[in-house]
Design a binder for these strands. Structure first.
Length: 429
RNA sequence: GCGGGCGUAGCUCAGUUGGUUAGAGCACAGGAUUGUGAUUCCUGGGGUCGGGGGUUCAAGUCCCCUCGCCCGCCCCA
């Protein structure tokens, strides 16, 4: 990502008002569903990600930023730490470390946090991206999967994003997936010499991903490949069935894609992705997630089911931009308190504080040479009222209040200026 | 990680076969206008020409390296 600044010439993606708004919307939506905020460190033990994401995954294999310990620390110069490439592993680690899975039921967490992957950056794909995610622990029921999908769909809907396609799949579990995997490798072996080099390299490390090849010839070759959905055991099949039925009952449209695979090895049963059709192919996926029933146990905790999702702020903003969805700008001041000369500057300052104490967004210039400058500033900021301090009326204990829209102005006792303006503003509504 | 394109003022860009002190528009600041903004006129501040090295009497311009952004892959969010 680049610098996120309150500058209107910045690209939409990097305007800070957009970020503030999106994060607030997400927090509010999660809290409405009973999720509570968590934060975990950016830097974790490298081993955590190796163990959870899978040694053969691209993320661990070539996209992780490695961090050396300081030379004074035990462990010396070895790069045994890493910048987190994804969010779930750290949250699971915290759940295990604090024994959270042992006592509370229905743990529901959300987070908004930067993730790091060492790749060649391009539009919609950054070395640092910010993920908004949620996780549910200790819930094996398919209803939890349904809530995750419904919640993310509801979030996009809440922020006005349309043209979203929900794709779901089941990737099986530790029992049925290896069986399918063997069968798939057998199928691919026969085509070995005809497939693309990329697919040949992938077929043993991650055969399910090979099926997802973009090569036209591969697509044709793999058309009749066995699918995971035909090889699920009873438990996984029942679970998937309930997810589909649950989504249907909630009126959430979805497509089943038996070739959908996620980039991390720890997923079990449900996997899902959200595509935004107004974005280009490569960056269409703006969010995704799935179930990870083995993850907590893998980290040394009690056997604890979990399901989660993540969505990228960057891609979500690109999606909002592609649909020309207006995001509220930062609020601008409604009142400017101006002063005639520096002798009354702090009197004006105090009056500005009176307005702010009444929750009226009020501006004040620290060093204004003359009233003209302050008027110009008021115009640029689009304020509704200017309160002028100084001159004859100030001697009488009054301030001059100017309605910037109508040009009308009148002198008001200084202690009732706030109530005067507030009354006018309220009357206008 | 692989292949390609682009980096000149805050922004959009110009800059000839290498040749004085790198320009324009917009934006910004000051003044005309010391109790009232939008027009106009005048003046001004701003640049490591992405960075480093090389060739040359001379480099924004040519060569090499590097960083950043963008595009296509791999992969992902």
């Amino acid at each position: 990502m680049g610098d996120v600044l309150p500058v209107s010439q910045q690209p939409f993606l990097y305007q800070s008002a957009n970020w503030v708004w999106l994060k607030r919307e997400f927090s509010a939506w999660c809290e409405l569903h009973g999720y509570q905020y968590v934060e975990t460190p950016v830097v974790e033990e490298l081993e955590l990600f190796k163990r959870t994401s899978g040694e053969t995954s691209d993320i661990v294999g070539k996209e992780m930023y490695l961090v050396k310990r300081s030379s004074g620390e035990a462990g010396g110069d070895d790069a045994t730490l890493a910048l987190r490439p994804e969010g779930s592993a750290g949250v699971c680690r915290a759940v295990v470390e604090h024994g959270l899975a042992k006592n509370a039921a229905g743990l529901k967490f959300y987070y908004i946090a930067p993730m790091f992957r060492s790749e060649r950056p391009q539009r919609g794909r950054y070395r640092q991206h910010t993920q908004m995610g949620a996780e549910i622990f200790k819930e094996a029921s398919a209803a939890a999967d349904v809530e995750m999908i419904a919640m993310l769909a509801g979030f996009y809907n809440r922020i006005g994003l349309g043209d979203i396609t929900v794709k779901i799949n089941s990737v099986g579990d530790a029992e049925c997936r290896p069986r399918y995997r063997e069968k798939l490798i057998q199928f691919l072996e026969i085509l070995r010499d005809q497939m693309s080099e990329d697919s040949r390299n992938r077929m043993h490390a991650n055969p399910m991903r090979a099926l997802d090849s973009k090569d036209d010839n591969d697509k044709r070759l793999f058309a009749d490949a066995p699918t995971i959905l035909d090889h699920l055991n009873q438990d996984c099949a029942d679970h998937f069935e309930e997810v589909k039925q649950g989504l249907a009952k909630l009126g959430i449209a979805f497509e089943v894609n038996p070739r959908l695979v996620r980039g991390l090895d720890y997923y079990t049963k449900t996997a899902f992705e959200f595509e935004c059709n107004t974005l280009d192919g490569a960056i269409k996926v703006i969010g995704g997630g799935g179930r990870y029933d083995g993850l907590v146990a893998q980290l040394g905790g009690p056997s604890t089911p979990g399901v989660g999702f993540g969505t990228s702020i960057e891609r979500t903003l690109l999606a909002l931009e592609s649909q020309k969805i207006a995001i509220p700008a930062f609020p601008t001041p409604r009142v400017l308190v101006a002063y005639m000369d520096s002798g009354v500057k702090y009197d004006a300052f105090r009056i500005a504080e009176d307005f702010r104490a009444e929750d009226i967004h009020t501006d004040f210039l620290y060093q204004a040479k003359n009233l003209g400058k302050q008027m110009k500033h008021a115009a640029e900021q689009g304020v509704e009222y200017v309160v002028m301090v100084g001159g004859e009326e100030w001697e009488r204990g009054e301030v001059r209040v100017k309605n910037f829209k109508t040009q009308e102005q009148s002198d008001i006792p200084k202690e009732s200026a706030v109530h005067y303006v507030r009354g006018r503003m309220a009357g206008k509504l």
